[in-house]
Design a protein around this nucleic acid. Structure first.
Lengths: 336, 336
DNA sequence: TTGAAAGCGATACCAA
DNA sequence: TTGGTATCGCTTTCAA
């Protein structure tokens, strides 16, 4: 592959001149520009981004660390970041398949080795402490879907507690008293807070959830199916079901109908996230909107700003998002 | 950020020695290893991947070019590649948002600038000619979901024509004679071949599709909804509908039911791709399985092999995949 | 407006 | 087993 030296030699100029036309540098004669440009095409020259990154000490790479791509929630997240990357002429370096604190750390370390200056991280396994250390090391690191007090201005997060409360209020408004819940088996903040907000708001209205009516499962379609089976196996009846996320909710509805329960006439089901799919499931899923793509765009923008020499937004940026209720068909007034 | 020189200086050894312990090089004393390792931790040293790539002339990057991430089909594709990347200790460089031949070319050029040696490309806009030129330039470039004769051994593709035939045979076996079809408005090979195989197989059984019963739309959930409306607006009736992909099919079902048609008792709907979602839609979607993740893994593996010094599989690798019918609930015997 | 040369951070060859 | 050093491809002063 042709190098800058080849171009310089063939064009009969110095590498400095080639570099100048490459970077639209100042003070290059039109003649040189034309000559060099022609030779670059002749030789099919492509500048080496690694060499460039090395000498300029800056990467045009935007790192993203997420658990997987198959979950549409994370796909939207990645898509949001990609959008910003494209706009800023940067490229996405993507890591998925994270299962433990070690793999998360490893993924981030690889980004650091690449000297990636801005990164959008979705980490659930790493400790606050580890993340804080990382954030101090990498100015352009932004956490999404996680809140850590010490680096609050680097966290873009959703108020899950309030989300749970909103769900509870919705059920109360629909006169539901026998309420069940499906949460994630991974007891990280999100499911915990959603459940906590949900329970506390119900409780303050005098509604209690029986322990047998809280099931845990893998946060996937299949996980939702299995969790519903556990709920049904308890023998307790319920008229409303709040589910950790849309995927589980749709799995849950699927299993409920397979067991002869009508949604929403017999059981109302409320999801969380508002992934595209929820608009097209049958019945259309009532859910809480999680503006993840918008948040991802926000996160990437902040990261880029923070990584630049003079960051503008140091303080008082609003990093907290509140989910909003999207009422569709899977929830209805309790007639029992 | 600490460099190899800093480590060498503090540890009181040469950079060569540091490099050796970094790469588990041969002939390093245990004492040196320990000393250097300790200093590396002290200084929080992280080797610069760009410098490494420059001097070794090889990147540990696996490039992926796809239209978007939100479509679960492409998400699965990316996930498959990522899986191989992880296993081979490589990282994903991802480009999405492709809308034209220019943007596709640009995305690939950026990968070339990064000296990315293996790339899995999903291109629909670039010409055969352009892709062939690129393939000759980049030994590790593999095309997925596209077939080009001249570089057949670099293409991993699905037999869409046969897919269309399988769909037709399924409808014929279910005694459907009034058949409609929704295709993609982007008349690239995939929809064209699917439709062609579908029509020709029906025709050879004496079944013709009325022109008004072929609609085109955006290959998305919304696109499917809108296309169905066009079909219904034609006033012609039909008992079976073959749809370009699952997303459109689910949108189509949604719109059919909104218009009072029962699926499958009144209208059978058959999708294409078998994305995860199709198992959880209501009714569960009958579709044709497109083993995209498996194909992506295959593509990435071939790319890595091709990019290596002595590729093993030069010829007679099977690059053609055949879709298989997955009968679920959205298709049934015609009783009209 | 142009060129010479230093240097970015690593690897790897050749001597010692 | 170690160290010195040329080198990868480029950018960026500093002089000319």
């Amino acid at each position: 592959m042709a190098t800058i030296k080849d171009v310089a030699r063939v064009a009969g100029v110095s590498v400095a001149s080639v570099s100048r036309v490459l970077n639209n540098g100042p003070k290059v004669s039109k003649a040189t520009i034309e000559k060099v440009t022609r030779v670059m095409q002749e030789l099919n020259y492509s500048p080496n981004a690694n060499a460039r990154a090395l000498v300029t000490q800056k990467s045009t790479t935007l790192g993203v660390v997420i658990p997987n791509l198959v979950d549409p929630f994370f796909a939207s997240l990645a898509q949001g970041v990609e959008q910003v990357a494209r706009q800023k002429n940067m490229q996405l370096l993507l890591s998925t398949g994270l299962v433990s604190a070690e793999t998360e750390m490893q993924a981030i370390n690889l980004l650091i080795e690449r000297r990636c200056e801005v990164m959008v991280i979705h980490s659930k396994k790493l400790s606050d402490q580890a993340l804080i250390a990382l954030a101090n090391q990498v100015p352009g690191l932004v956490l999404i879907d996680r809140y850590i007090e010490a680096i609050a201005q680097r966290c873009i997060w959703l108020d899950n507690l309030e989300g749970g409360r909103i769900a509870a209020r919705h059920f109360l408004a629909l006169a539901h008293k026998n309420v069940a819940c499906i949460s994630s088996k991974y007891q990280i903040d999100d499911p915990r807070l959603r459940l906590q907000g949900f329970q506390s708001e119900l409780l303050s209205a005098g509604v209690d959830i029986e322990p047998e009516l809280i099931a845990y499962g893998e946060p996937t379609l299949q996980g939702g199916e299995i969790a519903v089976q556990k709920l049904l196996a308890s023998g307790k009846s319920f008229s409303a079901l709040f589910v950790y996320n849309d995927a589980m909710a749709i799995g849950a509805i699927s299993a409920l109908e397979d067991n002869g329960f009508k949604v929403p006439s017999e059981i109302s089901v409320l999801g969380f996230d508002d992934v595209l799919l929820s608009r097209y499931s049958r019945p259309k899923l009532s859910t809480l909107n999680y503006p993840v793509e918008e948040m991802a765009i926000h996160a990437a923008s902040i990261g880029i700003d923070l990584a630049s020499k003079q960051p503008k937004n140091t303080a008082n940026i609003n990093c907290k998002y509140i989910p909003s209720l999207v009422k569709r068909e899977s929830t209805s007034f309790n007639l029992t």
